[in-house]
Each structure stands twice: as C-alpha cells, then as structure tokens.
Simulated scan of single mutants.
Amino acid sequence: MVSFSTALETERLVAIVRGDDARAAVRTLFESGVRLVEISLTSPDALGVIADLAGETPEDGWLGVGTIRTPEDVDGALAAGARFAVSPAATAVVGHSVRSGLPVLAGVLTPTEVETALGHGAQALKLFPASLGGVDHLKALRAPFPEVPFVPVGGVGVDEAVVYLKAGAVAVGVGSPLMGSGLSGLADRARRMLEAVAAR
C-alpha cells in the first residue's frame, strides 16, 4: 500500500463529504473512481459511517475523517477505521494524530501556521480557506516553502482545481462544488472533477 503522501500526489483529489447521505455519497464516490474521501465530523454519526464503510473501501482507496479538533476525535477515528485525518487548524491535535499513526492533512493559512503544522509532523497542508487569497496566496506561500505539499480547500470547483494544480498544489480538496445538492448527479460531477485533475 502506498503512503498517504504518495496517494495525494497520485490522485490529486480529496472529496469532502458532509451531511445526512454520507454513506451513499462515499459509496458513489468510490464507485466513480475517487480514491481519497474525507467524512467530516460535522456529519451526523460520522464515526459510525466510517466504521460501516471501512471494510468496503477499495484496496487502493483511503477513507478519512475530517474536522479533527481533539485527541478524542483522533482516537475515535482510529477505532472506527479511518486511514487519514484532516484538521481545520495547525494545533496540537495534529501531533497527537501523527503519533497515533494517523497521517494528517493539517489546516493552515499563514507562514507561521505552515511552520507549526510541519513541526507537528503533518504529511501535507490544507490551505484553508483557499478562496480567501486564491491562487496568488498559494504562489506566495510556495515561494518560501517550495517543497511543502499544499492542498487548497474551500471554494474549489473544476476550474479552480485546474488553476491550483498548475500553480503547484499537490492536490485539491473539494466539498460543496462536488457534492452539489445531494446524491443526484454526484457520479457525473465526480467523473468531471477526476478528468479535470488528471488533465492539469
């Protein structure tokens, strides 16, 4: 099995699932070819969903937990079978997750937060909210941190994904533009997003 960092570099897309239809959404995304799927803890029974689906994850797939904020979030995610975690900020929970064996995509916005997240051992950095500074902000951060794997999240649709990847992002995280208003059309949206990131 490849590492989380390698999976990000290869797949280029992290799908972010929230809401009441998480089980069906995750299944649809995996069936459509998406290989990195994050279920936010803001979703109802998120850990239960992960526990139910961990055994259904494709051999090359990664089912992760999003919005980890406490050590208890990390411990619960590991018990449920999550394979990676995503944090909204560069806090001590990142280090706890890494020490527990759960690779982390840690949320950052500023250079100080970049250094903090790296110090905690984050494997990649979630640039959030990416819409705040756009691609220019990504380029500005990559100047002092050219080797850091950034994953823009927040306001990233098909067009933005292509721009961010061309500007040096290792992958993009996509929630609302991919999920839309629900399951209707999700498979088609997923395939369009996969085509976009593959053609960067």
Rank of each mutant, 00 (worst) to 15 (best):
R69K: 14
R23H: 15
S181F: 09
L118T: 09
G180D: 14
L165M: 03
G66L: 00
V153H: 06
L138H: 00
R18F: 10
H96C: 07
V26F: 10
V148G: 09
S184M: 10
G119P: 02
S131T: 08
G133H: 02
A117K: 14
P144C: 09
G101C: 05
A46Q: 11
A90S: 15
G19F: 14
K139E: 05
A190D: 08
R200L: 12
D60F: 02
P44F: 08
S43T: 15
V93S: 02
P149I: 03
E113I: 08
L53Y: 13
V17D: 10
V49N: 11
G33M: 10
G175P: 02
P144K: 10
A90V: 10
V98S: 04
V86L: 13
T42N: 15
L178C: 11
A46C: 09
R69E: 15
I50L: 04
W62L: 12
G64L: 00
G66M: 03
T70P: 05
T110N: 12
L13I: 03
V197I: 02
F84E: 01
P146E: 14
V114F: 07
E9S: 12
G95A: 12
S184N: 12
S100F: 01
A15G: 03
G173F: 06
A92S: 13
L102Y: 01
R83W: 10
G133M: 04
R99C: 02
R18Y: 11
S87E: 07
Q123N: 08
G107L: 10
V174D: 07
V174K: 08
G48P: 12
G185S: 11
D45V: 01
G64I: 02
A90M: 11
G55W: 04
L78D: 01
R99M: 03
G133V: 00
E11A: 02
T6D: 13
G55N: 08
D52N: 14
